[in-house]
Design a protein around this nucleic acid. Structure first.
Lengths: 208, 208, 208, 208
DNA sequence: TATGAATGAGGGTTCATTCAT
DNA sequence: CATGAATGAACCCTCATTCAT
């Protein structure tokens, strides 16, 4: 029993990792299920024992990989003694960006999928397994505390800004490399948080 | 001769518009070349007289449609007597957002393609035809004048922010509708421009 | 031992009944062995312990179900005191038709399989189990007694006529409902028997 | 144009005949579209230019082949000077039986499909092309003339009787060969017609 | 006996592309 | 220039069957 289940887990993981490799190297649409099973060394029918179709495995990969990024960032944050909320957010973003720089295939894969739809589904509304790390961060830091006037919009803007700008900068160095871009990103992030502060005393910094 | 050329142009435009209709309604990957030629009322082989393949026609569509948006926004700006640079930029963005709200199929199509890669290729580096409107705006306002410390990065961040946030907000009302989101976008845009002002006297507003 | 054998019988019967339900509702060709075992709640491999393949279970079902029809008809006949041979045959046919009207799924299943091949194999030549009822009827009434000049041909024609006409009439009401059709069937059956009577004194009724 | 159309007709006919050969030799369910195109010497995609799927080609074959049988029988009838209605019907049936004896593959194919559903659809309600021969026979002989009390039921019973009994007799010689069976069939056919004669004076021949 | 994970050949179908007309 | 019949590789997916447990 345990042995069979272990074997199943190995097969499933093998398919997931193989698919990830092919998706990131050839692109999803150029990757066929035949490619996946051949690379994974299993029979075609085996794929369908574990996944409904190509998009099922893609969604499971996105959830899994995105969750991993946030978990590692959160873990790193807990190793520090940073206390200020803004500083903690900047640390998280910096850590995530660094992860993406290190793993460009991952960035290309979740690419612009690190967007609000996925973010909310996967991370805030909590996944099926145990990928619930960010849920805690989000709620304790933003949602519950009355610090921000509209926390959901604020997080949305930060996520979208970071996701969209990093993609081009990290992958293509356009318009500048990530090293040069980071300061601007951080300043914009701080600006966004600042404008959402409830007792906002910063009218000079962005009145429409 | 002229008549034949006109006929050719009609066929080409017919294929472009038909493809756009199908791409936006069924999605690119669900649209086959057979679908396009059938809907356009031409023979299969004819397609290949004008376009290399499905992705060729898609790219030409993106360039064409994006350019149209900027041209209309620029035209509207010229009807006004707004003078301040920041205000002119806000006006352009507001106008573009309104266009996308009116034409959601268009938004879905160029979706996140209204990103830096396309933007630069299509608009700044000047297209093949005559879609050179934005080139003038960009250079006269941002690039040549020494007003901003890094104009390309600034425009990049603005474009990415607007593109990414509008997508989710306009199409899905997530996390809030575009009406509610706009003020935040504009304030962030102003903040970004402000932080790029050469004689920047705003250190308190976003130092990392 | 007895308990194990009972369990085996239960599994076998469960598979048979489940298969019958699926065959009649979805059709044989749309029913897979996976469907059967899943619905029966047993493992895939278990199927092969009892049946060779899908057609094996189908044949056993036809034999079983057809036999049941004849047994019930015969049982009902014995409850009556009808004596005339023609009348007894008409009673049997009427009873069988009524059963098929009540159980259209059964009719559809054995459909045109209630034909000579199956009939002879299953009923006259005696089945494998104990479905030997009709064998007695047939031999005592038709075969042994010298009443009819060619009893096998006679029974053959009656069976085929009833099977073929009932199918269309009961299932689709074409060309008329079974109520309207029955008198014609009975008259034809009587005519067939009449023409096979050895001392045939009925030349006016069908000389070629 | 004419040349291309001729070529298309050749391809279509080639596919039809090839499919017929395979259907009759291997059975429909054992015949794959791959088999058909391979035997016909065309590419797989070509099949789908002419037929929707396997059942589309089967239906077209049944209509085509059944129609041919009736047309040939009718043609032969017109070469004779038989006048009596009963005799004309017997001639038609005899001719059809003889055709089926000569072409057992055809019999196996349309087999029990020479039943009421197909018969009515294909022949009485008139096909799409010009297969309207039997329509004339049927209406002039049975339907319009007030000779028979319920002509549709009468024809139905004759068709079903002949179809069902011939199948077993011709293909398997069960329970007797077709030569021995024919007289019985004809006598039963005459009996059926006789009992439908409007001024029926034959109550003794089949009262229930 | 009973299981059910694994297999992989083969099914139907689509579609970009070619080329003779 | 324009056509559209023909192609055939490649796709996704099913499922009867096996066999180690």
């Amino acid at each position: 029993m345990s042995k069979i289940d272990k074997n199943k887990q190995i097969k499933r993981d093998s398919l997931l990792e193989t698919a990830f490799g092919l998706f990131t190297s050839k692109g999803i649409h150029k990757t066929s299920i035949s490619d996946i099973v051949e690379a994974a060394g299993v029979a075609k029918g085996t794929f369908y024992l574990y996944f409904k179709d190509k998009y099922d495995i893609r969604n499971k990969l996105i959830a899994h990989k995105s969750s991993g990024i946030f978990q590692r960032a959160d873990h790193a944050l807990n190793q520090t003694d940073i206390t200020g909320l803004e500083d903690r957010v900047i640390f998280l973003i910096d850590n995530i960006i660094n992860q993406l720089v290190e793993d460009k295939a991952l960035l290309r894969f979740i690419s612009k999928n690190l967007s609000w739809g996925v973010f909310k589904t996967v991370l805030i509304e909590a996944g099926d397994d145990s990928d619930v790390v960010f849920y805690d961060i989000y709620h304790s830091a933003f949602a519950d505390a009355g610090t921000f006037e509209n926390p959901e919009v604020m997080v949305f803007m930060m996520i979208e800004l970071v996701g969209a700008t990093c993609y081009s900068s990290i992958l293509y160095g356009e318009p500048v490399g990530i090293g040069e871009l980071k300061p601007y990103i951080f300043r914009t992030i701080r600006s966004i948080m600042s404008m959402h502060r409830t007792a906002g005393r910063e009218p000079e910094c962005g009145a429409i």
